Amino acid sequence: MTQYVRDIMTGDPVTVEPQASVTAVARIMRDRDLGAVLVADGDELRGLVTDRDLVIRSVAEGGDPEQTTVAGACSDDMVTVRSDEELDHAVELMREHAVRRVPVVDDGRPVGIVSLGDLAMERDPESALGDISVARPNP
């Protein structure tokens, strides 16, 4: 049976504007229990930022997180997929580009994110990665 990205993606992604401060984005991630958000200017996808990106590309550089915008911390050289593409294509892209998350874009608009955790849960929910993906985060 053919599976599609739309079958396992996390829909309705959280997006922030490129001008959002690193602090504001970190709070959104904390409050919504997210590891990544999409950076969009209106409906146009500009990048993806992870909690790790915030630490490595902003905090570790010594910038003031209240004054530093997320535009400088996000990955803007992204690979994307459409929701109607086969899931195997998303897996190939993740392997080829060594990424854990791929934004899902339909008609130029971000509509979701497919992650390594989503794939683990779909392919082998009993695997260690599957277990980790559904575990509640540490308080």
Rank of each mutant, 00 (worst) to 15 (best):
V91H: 04
A71W: 05
T69D: 13
G42P: 05
D31N: 15
T69V: 10
A73R: 08
A20I: 01
A128V: 14
Q19P: 02
V104C: 01
E85L: 08
M94H: 11
T2P: 13
G11W: 00
R27F: 00
Q19T: 14
S58M: 02
A40F: 10
A36H: 08
R136A: 15
V70R: 01
T68E: 14
S133T: 12
D41G: 06
V39T: 02
P110C: 10
D106C: 02
Q67H: 13
G72D: 15
A90L: 13
G42S: 06
E85F: 03
G11T: 04
L45H: 07
D118L: 03
A71S: 14
A71G: 03
S115W: 00
G63E: 14
R6G: 04
E85R: 10
E92Q: 12
V16C: 07
T68I: 12
A36G: 09
D31A: 10
V134G: 00
D76A: 07
P137A: 13
M1T: 07
G35Q: 09
H89C: 08
D53I: 07
P18V: 11
A40H: 08
Q67S: 15
D64N: 14
T80M: 09
R101G: 06
P137S: 14
L48D: 06
V22A: 08
L45F: 07
T69F: 09
E61C: 04
A60S: 14
G35P: 07
A98S: 12
Q3L: 09
E92Y: 14
R123A: 08
R95Y: 04
S75N: 14
G108R: 10
H89T: 15
T80H: 04
R52N: 10
A60L: 14
